[in-house]
Design a protein around this nucleic acid. Sequence first.
DNA 1: CCCGTTGCGTTCGGAATCAGAACCCACTAA
DNA 2: TTAGTGGGTTCTGATTCCGAACGCAACGGG
Lengths: 147, 147
Amino acid sequence: MRWSRIAEQDCSVARALSVVGDRWTMLVLREAFMRTRRFEDFQVRTGAPRPVLAERLRTLVDNGVLERRRYSERPDRYEYRLTDKGRDLYPVVVSLLRWGDRWMTGTAEPPVELRHRACGHQMHPELACPECGEWVDPRDVDATARR
Amino acid sequence: MRWSRIAEQDCSVARALSVVGDRWTMLVLREAFMRTRRFEDFQVRTGAPRPVLAERLRTLVDNGVLERRRYSERPDRYEYRLTDKGRDLYPVVVSLLRWGDRWMTGTAEPPVELRHRACGHQMHPELACPECGEWVDPRDVDATARR
DNA sequence: CCCGTTGCGTTCGGAATCAGAACCCACTAA
DNA sequence: TTAGTGGGTTCTGATTCCGAACGCAACGGG
């Protein structure tokens, strides 16, 4: 199967990856959550090659994850901002961050620290079940196909 | 910058992606969480080309996400199982699933349903702050670089 | 007026990866 | 003996990547 047809799988993970599963795309989103908005800044901070970045931004806009908004006329300049659909990817990026902190930093301190304004604490977010409020362990979950 | 040097960034997201950020890798993990263990099954269920799958399994094993365990001698047969490090990627896969459910299924029912054995309910896991127990909204979080 | 700079891309190769089909090997079962 | 299974590897053409260079519109200074 070709990667470009990955969205045809009847699976939400596959369909999500058809939008955000390409190289560099997650790093673009990481930057977007760090309030990066401009092409040059995305380019320098992610390290993505310029043609690749241009293409990724285009498809994120086409898929409604970012919106391209003019912030200057003469010359026309555009910035890229997260939409609601894009902001909803926060758990994905944070989960990657958490995993990298735990398993990929060796003995060093994690490079970034999250602080929760609501409670003022340094934060290590985890998945919880909204019904019972418990932290989710994969071995407590049954996944069943509906079709 | 080359993708192969992505792990050199001082960022946990980048380092996580150096292990799980390649095409097909997340689908392999999706299957692993669905209790797939064998090469043939991974191949059919993810749709990844065989040489790509072989390479992905190898690097996941090299990175300690999967372990390769012999389940038969004569002929030698191996299966791939999640390690603790691999199981800890569950929030990433589930977050992708949730996002795909919300934004990529149109009006249809999500293809997979999660059920929490602890409480018996159908489950839609969310990120929460362990300190205060609140659900995490990206706008309530400050991310600050430590170096 | 000319020159350098900024911002945002596109164009153009060669290099790396991918994708699909075929093949290989060890064993088992009919 | 032939077919099938499990787990790969090899081969080749098609994509994709990547880095450097270029384009273009405006702006700022001398």
